[in-house]
């Protein structure tokens, strides 16, 4: 007789029970975890924090990414930024639902991916939409990098927030989920601050840097403002591959490189 969690018992539960069955979910937990792209890292380039600043911020980051891809496989995700904020506020004021905001916001991350793609084209780096992710392994092996728009493809099926209409799962969550589903070796969020602060350092001068924190501690702190999307923390709690992420300052040259080399140069958020 097969014990709990064995393939036989999982198989019979799958055939007999509802997919929400507790025993079935527990049995599926014992399934092995195969990392699909274990040598790749996901690097998310912030929209508002970097790309909206134009070439003074973006050119040095592109140079650094080009240098990094000599030794690392990188999937470069893009954020939205100030245009996403504009279209969210217009759409919200018109009374449109979260699903519509998600669609129009996704286009902004797409524009940012296109612009970054133009700057990296001469180095052979393609822009790849999620519908073409099947070709990512080829791009990674041939040129060690690919750019993708960071917004997840939830469209009209985006979950609605408890309050308001802003899409809760945006480009931080989208980039993180790419890293998690492919079993990537690291996830770096490139922003314009040295990491996570106790408050927004742009508006609160008393904010202090938190160099390292666990997901549970960060949720418990319930900070008024955070540098990563809050739902990302819940996703991380459930991670099977990417249990730690680092937020680094992309305005300071060299930090993305050092973070990918495993150095602690920003804020590390981890599940334990």
């Amino acid at each position: 007789m097969a014990g709990p969690g064995s393939a036989t018992s999982l198989e019979s539960l799958l055939m007999k029970r509802s997919l929400g069955d507790h025993e079935l979910m527990a049995a599926s937990d014992a399934a092995p975890d195969y990392a699909i792209l274990p040598d790749a890292s996901v690097v998310k380039i912030g929209g508002q924090s970097l790309i909206d600043r134009g070439r003074t911020a973006v050119y040095p980051v592109v140079e650094e990414l080009v240098e990094i891809k000599r030794t690392h496989q990188i999937l470069i995700g893009t954020g939205g930024g100030t245009r996403a904020r504009h279209v969210y506020s217009v759409a919200a004021e018109l009374g449109l639902p979260t699903g519509v905001l998600t669609e129009v916001g996704a286009a902004v991350a797409g524009q940012n991916a296109k612009m970054l793609g133009c700057l990296m084209a001469r180095y052979g780096v393609p822009v790849v939409g999620h519908e073409a992710f099947g070709a990512l392994p080829l791009y990674l092996s041939e040129c060690r990098a690919a750019i993708f728009p960071g917004m997840p493809p939830y469209d009209m099926w985006q979950q609605v927030p408890a309050e308001g209409v802003l899409p809760p799962y945006r480009t931080d969550a989208g980039c993180y989920l790419v890293a998690e589903v492919y079993g990537c070796r690291s996830m770096i969020f490139v922003k314009d601050e040295d990491g996570l602060y106790t408050a927004n350092p742009k508006t609160d001068p008393s904010a202090t840097l938190i160099p390292r924190i666990t997901v549970d501690e960060l949720i418990a702190l319930d900070l008024p403002d955070v540098i990563v999307e809050r739902p990302l923390l819940d996703l991380m709690r459930r991670a099977r591959h990417v249990t730690s992420v680092q937020v680094v300052n992309g305005l300071k040259p060299g930090l993305i490189t050092r973070a990918l080399a495993g150095e602690h140069v920003g804020t590390i958020i981890s599940t334990a």
Binding site: T82, G95, G164, V226
Partner: peptide, 29 residues
């Protein structure tokens, strides 16, 4: 330099107090 003025400009969109002003009843499409 490159901001588009909006009620959410420069926000992280994660400060619950700051995003509240844009809340409106949602229409049925």
């Amino acid at each position: 330099v490159k901001d588009v003025p909006s009620a959410l400009m420069r926000q992280t969109l994660l400060d619950r107090e700051l995003v509240r002003p844009i809340d409106r009843p949602v229409m049925r499409l």
